[in-house]
Amino acid sequence: MTSLEACVRESKARISAAASGERFASAFTPTAAFVILVACAIPILTLEARAQLQSTVGTQSVLQSLIKWFPLILFGPPREFGGFALNIAVSFLAMALGTAVGIVLGLGQISIHRPLRNLAWALTQFFRNAPWLVLLFFVMLLTPFQIRLFGFSIPLPGWLKASVGLSLPIMANMSEIVRGAVNSIPTAQWESAESLAFTRLQTLWRIILPQCVRRMIPPWMNWYAILTMATPLISIVGVNDAMTLTQDALSAEQRTDLLMPMYSLLLALFFLYCYPIARWTLWLERKYAVKI
């Protein structure tokens, strides 16, 4: 009995520790960000020093190699769209698609028509609880490489399909954000709107949803950051993103001393992009928490 209690207590402690993760994040100051960047730079610099010691004519130092490959990893091969810029583009596209369809699905979840509500609920649950990589493969393999429309063949590029694949989990989570936000508005708001003879649609658009927007923005931004960090998944399905190009560069160089510095560079890129979003989200959360 006591061991069971201890077990329960321990798991509770773990849950509360997980819940306080957000508090840790808020303690995550720009100073901490700097420390992490330095930590990323250390392997680069130490290996750089070692490489210089060992360098012979014809071999570039680690730093020189990084500088050489950096434009490729950032923007992709010349006259082609790729690299980190493609990761960002995919994140924008997947977010836009996922948000648009997710809002519709979320409104479906609060519909007064039971079949519609159940369908929206089932879709939401399915895509929320599916592994992103599997969804990605599913979309890549399910969709043709080109479609015929009015006699024209329109190619479906990999990055487009990848964006659709990644938009599915975003859609499902957006649906939950909408449902949660609408349910968080006191029912008294619905009641007073009804007593003023607003229709259900008018109440939703004019009264409920405007109050939801500020509640939805922080979790929505949070999902955007998560999505961006998941975009290297698309390298597995053959898209020229930053991850693919880093691997290409490494296999071209065939140098083990470049492994850590190159991946550190990639991590630093994502960190520099996502960390400000996380800070901004926290700031918005705090700002809105006071007002409502």
Partner: peptide, 13 residues
């Protein structure tokens, strides 16, 4: 018939 509520229920936005 119009109704006024205990908690006012104004639209806060």
């Amino acid at each position: 018939v119009s109704m006024v509520f205990q908690q006012y229920n104004l639209f806060p936005h």
